[in-house]
Design a protein around this nucleic acid. Structure first.
Lengths: 348, 348
DNA sequence: CACGGGGCAGCAAGCGCTTTCTATCGAGGC
DNA sequence: GCCTCGATAGAAAGCGCTTGCTGCCCCGTG
């Protein structure tokens, strides 16, 4: 049998109401009484019953963080930042919040499932990271769910995802387009004219925006956008490896490979090396995100740094109400071009 | 105003009890009635109130996963595996479970805090990953907490952590000692005699076990354990970088560096390279864990592969009761030596 | 035709906590 | 010295769901 509030009340010779008030610290209680209650709590090793408390108070201290792939540091870093702003002694008196990370695997169904589960738990806030799927029905189902969550008082923050119209969700959007544009412009500036592009999975906003930025840079330089030079894959190393072989077969004359993210770029490097090509002498390689391992690659990877940690932390603060949402509920987070050893002037 | 069970019952012309039974599927309900209820649920867009349900049923569908550092793929991979076994259509009818990942940052205080929070939520199960801190008071506080959790019916599984005596927790322990022994033996077999060792933070079981394995191999080969050759640091890249410079200063004659894990090894590689040393011609480098990026390092990293995904999945299954715990509640998970390009016979 | 029993549905009693409203006590104010 | 007000503490009504028990109806059986 577990210890209940009533047990504590009995031992401290007060009413359950008083114990509750001491624990929540939201009502005046005489110092002596408080002492007595706290003593009883300690002696009985009492632990509040979360569900009961959530039911009675109609609120909970759960904050959900949705990520596409928890094994990917891109998400791990953001989640860590969000959680560090939440788990701490945030909120009001004794405001211990349980920040929970949910792994959607990039599937919109699972995303929806988790949102429902969080809604069911009456979560205090939800932070959704990662790009959205652009498939119509799913997109609107998710928008509808977000709307319901905000309507029920759950604070919703999108981190690294485009704004969702009329959902009441705050959005911190990454400037993927601008970053990609800068990156490709950098390569063009070096003299590259035939650039391979390894894009992420189709139908995702992140993929589309990065690709659009790339094409904008191409267009700005008056270069033709040869469809042969673009292949789609997943956001992982293996995909980059395979796509690069593909690219090499289709366009042996390319002098640079731009990858959807750093992991993909690493896979590309591996493939190029196996093909006997030197980086950057024969082929330049560029990534995106600037994850911690990118600087360690040989040569170090040219990429676009996204302030994942800062963005996550801000999302966490907004989710807990400790920071005002940006005006209009939308803020754009810019990336920064990091030029390193993996890009250079083309051969010849 | 949110929709309640009673609203659904009214619309379906049945009692709340019936709706509850349809939703839980644990009691015979006539097909026609079920249909009617399900229709009402859909029409009203009803979402069960988690806290109320948990309170009444005295159980919850929450499963907690504690990790040291969510931004580290080592933990990300395990967490992902655990979650994939849990989040799915596990358990009984409609058994949607909410698997939540909690980031302790390696601090025992936060570990304790999260365990209390999970206890408060009456979690169905808890999976604790990562090595334990060996500091007496903390260790016993955590053991006491685990004991309370299991006593309250929460299934506790330790994944990659030594067994906790008398707590009722199931343990899947990594054979860090054996793996480290093999790794160092491999280097000694190549002819190395002066091996630098970059250990993890002190007072942690993982650190100690890996170091012990290293020393066992040294002893078995009749090599002296020169304290100059061991430095402690954190489990990250930067730490490996700094420690290597340190090591190089103290023992310029070393021919191999063994790192506490792969991230540390990568940092070591960076430092060695900056120092003008070639890998593996001048200095061999070895890591531990075999994270995905290790094979991509140049040269590819010799390391000990830990089956993180398999272990996590198994922990998840045991936590949800879909797999029998190992006899005695303890199982040892062995690593596998992966010999790659970063180790070779010493120079000279 | 009467009776027993199985299959379903409903009643109602909580689960452990929060919170509104009410009661009490002591200290000032007139 | 009596009344009022401020400061605390308690009583009690739920929060929305689960579940043991009861009740009803209809079918099969003797």
């Amino acid at each position: 049998m577990t210890v209940t509030l009533a047990d504590v009340a009995a031992r401290a010779q007060v009413s359950p109401a008083t114990v509750s008030r001491v624990l929540n610290g939201n009502y005046p209680v005489a110092a002596a009484t408080r002492e007595r209650v706290l003593k009883a709590v300690a002696e009985l090793d009492y632990v509040l019953n979360g569900p009961a408390s959530a039911l009675a108070a109609a609120t909970s201290d759960l904050v959900g963080i949705l990520v596409n792939d928890i094994a990917d540091p891109f998400f791990g870093i953001m989640a860590s930042a969000v959680q560090s702003e939440i788990g701490g002694s945030a909120g009001r008196a004794g405001g211990e919040r349980l920040a929970v990370v949910c792994n959607t695997g990039g599937s919109p169904e699972r995303e929806l499932t988790y949102l429902t589960l969080l809604q069911r738990q009456r979560a205090a806030a939800v932070v959704v990271t990662g790009g959205a799927v652009e498939d119509g029905p799913h997109a609107s189902a998710i928008a509808a769910k977000l709307r319901k969550l905000t309507a029920a008082g759950t604070r919703v923050v999108l981190c690294g995802r485009p704004p969702a119209e009329d959902t009441g969700a705050v959005a911190l959007t990454f400037d993927n387009r601008g970053g990609a544009r800068q990156l490709t412009a950098h390569l063009i500036g070096l003299g590259h004219r035939r650039l391979g592009y390894i894009a992420g999975p189709e139908e995702r906003t992140t993929t589309r925006h990065r690709l659009e930025g790339h094409r904008q840079a191409l267009a700005a330089a008056g270069l033709e956008d040869d469809p042969t030079l673009t292949v789609h894959g997943r956001y992982d190393r293996r995909s980059g490896y395979e796509a690069t072989w593909d690219l090499l077969r289709r366009a042996p004359d390319l002098t640079a490979v731009v990858a959807a993210n750093d992991s993909v770029a690493l896979g590309a490097c591996a493939a190029l090396r196996e093909a006997g090509l030197r980086i950057p002498e024969d082929v330049s390689v560029a990534g995106f995100d600037d994850l911690p391992f990118s600087v360690d690659a040989v040569p170090a990877l040219t990429t676009v740094r996204l302030p994942l940690s800062e963005a996550g932390a801000r999302a966490g603060r907004i989710a807990t109400g400790r920071e005002e949402p940006p005006p209009g509920g939308i803020a754009t987070v810019r990336g920064e071009l990091m030029v390193r050893g993996s890009t250079a002037v083309p051969r010849g």
